[in-house]
Computed example of a mutant assay.
Amino acid sequence: MKIAITGGTGFVGRHLAERYDPSQVVVVSRRTGVDIDDVDGLATAFAGCDVVAHCAGINRQIGAQTYQKVHIDGTRAVVEAARRAGVKRILMLSFLRARRDCGSPYHESKWAAEELVRRSGLDYTILKAGMIYGHGDHLVDHVSRSVQTVPLFATVGFHEKPIRPIPITEMVDVLVAAATGELPYSTVAVVGGEELMLSEVVHRIAGIVDRRVLVVPAPVWTIRVLAQITEWTMKVPLIAKAQARMLTEGVSEAAPPTDELPESLRPRLPFTAAQIEAALPERGGFGFSDLRIAH
Rank of each mutant, 00 (worst) to 15 (best):
P162C: 01
T155P: 13
E160A: 07
F158G: 15
V172R: 08
Q148Y: 06
T155D: 12
A154D: 00
Q148F: 05
S144H: 05
H138E: 11
S144L: 09
H159C: 14
H135M: 10
L175G: 00
V140M: 10
I166P: 03
T169N: 11
L152V: 14
V143F: 09
T149W: 13
L139S: 02
K161H: 15
R164T: 14
T169D: 12
P167I: 14
R145E: 09
P151L: 08
M171T: 14
P167Q: 02
D173C: 07
D173L: 05
H159S: 13
T169V: 09
F153W: 12
G134Q: 08
I168V: 15
V147W: 12
L175Q: 12
G157S: 10
I163N: 02
S146P: 02
T155S: 07
P151K: 08
V147H: 09
A154I: 02
V143K: 02
P151S: 13
I132K: 03
T149G: 05
V172N: 10
P151R: 09
D173V: 05
Q148H: 06
P151V: 12
I132R: 02
V140A: 01
G136P: 11
H159Y: 09
F153I: 03
I132S: 00
P151D: 13
V147K: 03
H159A: 14
T155H: 03
G157A: 06
D141I: 00
M131S: 12
A154V: 03
I166T: 01
L175A: 11
T149A: 05
V156P: 01
I132Q: 02
H142C: 00
I168Y: 03
V156T: 13
D141A: 05
H135N: 09
H135Q: 06
H135C: 02
Y133N: 06
D173N: 14
L152R: 04
D141K: 11
D137G: 08
Y133S: 10
R145N: 11
F153V: 09
H142G: 01
V176C: 14
V147R: 12
P167A: 01
V143C: 07
A154K: 11
V172A: 01
G157T: 13
F153N: 03
I166L: 10
K161S: 10
T149Y: 08
P151F: 14
V174K: 03
V174M: 11
D141S: 06
E160L: 05
D173Q: 06
M131L: 15
L139D: 04
P162V: 02
V174P: 00
I166K: 14
I163C: 12
I168E: 01
V176Q: 08
A154N: 08
P162T: 05
I166G: 12
V172M: 13
V174Y: 01
A154R: 11
V150G: 01
L175R: 05
A154G: 14
S146K: 11
D137L: 10
M131F: 11
P167G: 03
P151H: 11
I163E: 02
R145L: 07
V176H: 08
I163A: 07
D137A: 09
P162L: 01
I163F: 00
V174F: 04
H138A: 14
T169Q: 14
P165D: 03
V176K: 15
